[in-house]
């Protein structure tokens, strides 16, 4: 069964077409990377996959439903590049942030024991149980990203979507973060990752789609660096780490 299916998507902001005839899919339990140079349309594509944008042509499907009509938000865990910006100045504890992951499950009801148990479990899984009462803004970049992945886990998701989750995170914390992501994938959670560090992606992901407005590569991750698609998408100054030339 496919967790994500993207079928011949075309999307434009006004007259500026940013995606043309893009197709790829992710099997249930897969670890899929989405790469491409800056401005290639990766984040737009992710928003379409998550149902936050509607394609002009083609269709994105989540769990076999049209993505923008998909209602069960608890099945999607989302960690973004610089989540959540200004919100980190708020007096909000790590536990309160992680508890937000239970909102789609709880709805308007009060949080119940199961919600609390899942929050505690997610905190432990992300390795941040001991800092659960600290203010989110006081954490390091690596700790914060773990808090956001714990928030995603608290909802008991089937799909984890991450948009450059380790920007601004030091190398050691980044390795730890990707180790955790690998363990979660081993547990059966489907992973969709946008990452600018190609070496990390090739090392960690199973499958990979390279886009630069259209698809240049869509196959196993470990074959990407030797492919024509890699050269064509990035040009001569192909990156090893740090993104587009």
């Amino acid at each position: 069964m496919k967790t994500v299916e993207v079928d011949d998507i075309t999307f434009a902001y006004g007259d500026d077409e940013v995606l043309t005839d893009v197709s790829f899919s992710i099997d249930e339990g897969g670890y899929h990377a989405l790469v491409g140079p800056n401005g290639a349309g990766k984040s737009t594509l992710l928003k379409i996959v998550l149902g936050k944008l509607v394609p002009d042509e083609g269709e994105a499907r989540l769990f076999d439903e049209t993505a923008h009509r998909f209602k069960d938000g608890a099945r999607i865990g989302y960690v973004s590049q610089n989540a959540p910006g200004a919100g980190e100045r708020m007096p909000v504890s790590v536990r309160e942030v992680v508890r937000m992951g239970r909102v789609p499950r709880a709805g308007l009801s009060r949080f119940r024991r199961r919600d609390t148990e899942q929050v505690d479990k997610a905190l432990r899984r992300a390795g941040i149980a001991e800092i659960a009462d600290r203010q989110i803004g006081s954490l390091s970049g690596g700790q914060r990203q773990r808090a956001y992945i714990a928030r995603a886990l608290a909802g008991e998701p089937d799909l984890l979507a991450l948009d450059e989750p380790t920007v601004g995170v030091d190398a050691e914390a980044r390795d730890g973060f990707y180790d955790l992501l690998g363990e979660l994938n081993d547990d059966g959670i489907t992973v969709l990752l946008i990452e600018h560090d190609i070496e990390t992606v090739v090392e960690r992901a199973e499958t990979l789609t390279c886009v630069n407005r259209t698809v240049f590569y869509d196959d196993d991750a470990d074959g990407f660096l030797g492919s024509d698609g890699f050269v064509k998408a990035y040009g001569k100054g192909t990156p090893s780490t740090g993104g587009a030339p």
Binding site: L50, K52, F70, K71, D72, G73, A74, I76, Y78, S80, A83, P84, G87, M90, V92, E96, V97, R99, M100, G101, V103, P104, A106, L108, F111, Y148, R151, G155, A161
Partner: peptide
């Protein structure tokens, strides 16, 4: 719960429907 979520991180809240 919902007001706090959209106040803190409206993008993630939107993804969570």
């Amino acid at each position: 719960k919902q007001l706090l979520y959209i106040t803190f991180d409206r993008e993630a809240a939107g993804v969570s429907r």
